[in-house]
Design a binder for these strands. Sequence first.
DNA 1: AGCACGCCGACT
DNA 2: GTCGGCGTGCTC
Length: 729
Amino acid sequence: MSIVRVALPLPLPQVFDYLAPDATAADVGRCVTVPFGRGERNGLILALGAAADIEPARLKTVRHIQREVPPLPADWLELVDFVARYYHAPIGEVVALALPPGLRRADGVSGEDEDPLLQIAAAGREALCGARRASKALALLQGLAAAGEGPWRRSVVRALEGGEAVGELLRRGWIRVAERVADRVAPRHAAGAQPEPTPEQTQALEAILGAGPGFKPWLVHGVTGSGKTEVYLRLAAHLLAQGRQVLMLVPEIALTPQLERRVAQRFAAAHVVSLHSALADGARSRGFVQALAGEADIVLGTRLAVFAPLPRLGLILVDEEHDASYKQQEGVRYSARDLAVWRARQRGVPVVLGSATPSLETWYHARSERYALQTLNQRALAATLPAVRCIDTRRLRLDEGLSPALQAALGERLARGEQSLVFLNRRGYAPVLSCPSCGWVSRCPHCSANLVVHLADRRLRCHHCGCDGPIPSACPSCGDQDIRPFGRGTQRVEARLAELFPQARVLRVDRDAARTRRQWESVLATIAEGGADILVGTQMMAKGHDFPNLTLVGVIGADAALHAADFRAPERLFQQLMQVGGRAGRGALAGTVLIQTEYPAHPLYQQLARHDFDAFARMALQERRSAGFPPFTHQAMLRADAPALDAAVDFLRHARRLAEECAPEGLRLYDPVPMRLTRLARRERAQLLIEADQRGVLQGFLAGWVALLYRQRTARELRWQLDVDPLEV
DNA sequence: AGCACGCCGACT
DNA sequence: GTCGGCGTGCTC
């Protein structure tokens, strides 16, 4: 009679032992259904137990072991265990987060391939010869025949001209699903069209591949447009040819479809699996199992893909490694980028982090030679980097935030038939509605934030909790009718631009205008077809899209980030401006970036104008060093929230007293303070910062402290969570 | 997290 | 006399 140790999805820092009459070592890593309390739960067998830590009489028996799916391998269990220990999260919650929800249900997953290999069938060849009347299906078939022998992934066929007819082709029997094994061996990694690499790309490739197998972290620092993706794809091709799997992480789903298409076309016959949270349960489970079974060649996905089991793993790629979306901001607050490096070390494979504006943490590692650095300075497509200039707005009268110089520049592009982008990181019409006579402001009833004026749908909306209401016609406090929106957001700038340039087509691109993926794609299509002259956009516009006809980027309202209390604000500003500036002039046309500022001499803007990331990073790291901020120190944040602020602060004071008793030498404990956005969705929040210069000191302390915290009995309404390596302090 | 058990207010 | 409030404690 065996005992199995089972991780269950509960916020408890423990595992549960069960009797399992027929369990063997081969069942470690398998999903199980177990009786729990008066119900049933699904969990994962982490290990076989020699003896239970409770009296044997209290042990219950496992209901069902899921044996249709291969067990999760030891290295995967090790990864999950590391995450639980490093982020001090309950192992069961980590497992729940890492496994696709469908898989945990232990009722089996269909192994059917949603993206099968297709080839032309005998009936299809007949159809090609016979004189048939033209149809969409025939056109697609002819297109395929012209493309060669195949086989092709279904997703590749779909992406072709007229690809919607792929289902019709299958129904008519003109194409068929290729036999798996036999067909896949030879043409499996046949690569699609490959552009010639630039000398810099070649150098990076030779360096990375020349280093051979084995763990080695790389930073590829490449300016926007220098062709980092081409480097990733060639590295991937190399590893695929050796029969290895490649894990490729990307920031968010907005960019995923394009990259997916590019990867699918490049590796037409390779098995590409994409994993992200927008995927339906079935598809996500299927992709996960294909990775686990070693069938997937490339796993492409957002942060959760770092948990894909990969038996033949040969390389990990992290695109835009500085992107904040790699850090989960709720529940288990893991950093997929950091875990990618840990996994690469664990598996003994290279890991490549890529960015035009690396995070200062990564940059510091590269400077101190813990990561090897490869630099791509040349733009692969356009001749030059955009010219960046500041517009000094100190003595200017701005028209809805727009300086005369920016207006003139916009007018010029318009006359030349080129596109412009006005970048403003604030959506809505105005950030607040206010009454000048009594001082009333539109406060959110649930948060310590103002309600934002959305004139487009005539609502006041909280950008933090999402609550909204109609715009009042008079001041709710004193009845004065003269209430006014103050400040400006994208909608207001959009409206003013439409007045200033009545002949221009002004298009707003923010989360309100592109809420769904479908809307977003239609916006992109409009821009690509030249259906817009002036774009007004938030940071959504900053990320990796090519707009060949865009030659001017105007930045307004950037100065706010210079004064922000968050020590990471300048880093984010620099990254954002560099990224958004990279949108200008990617085609044959040269680009210009105009930054409106009251601090034209500020070093950050000067470094930006020289495209000098090194200088910026040097300065920023120097500031971090002297102020004692990461990466020169290591932080953890304990956060608490409750309906009343006192309850949250009192808990943190208590936690601090507990910490003082077990604090090692070199640990710094700060005072509990209310968070910047103290009230969020009717809950008051406070936080307690803990710091140490040595990661080991911090980690050693946290382990004991968190165990103590779990033992505290706290009021039901109080919740707390720990954030290791927090991004927001 | 659920879901029990457990002692005190306004109701058929 | 009960229905039900959510405080406290447990789940292998």
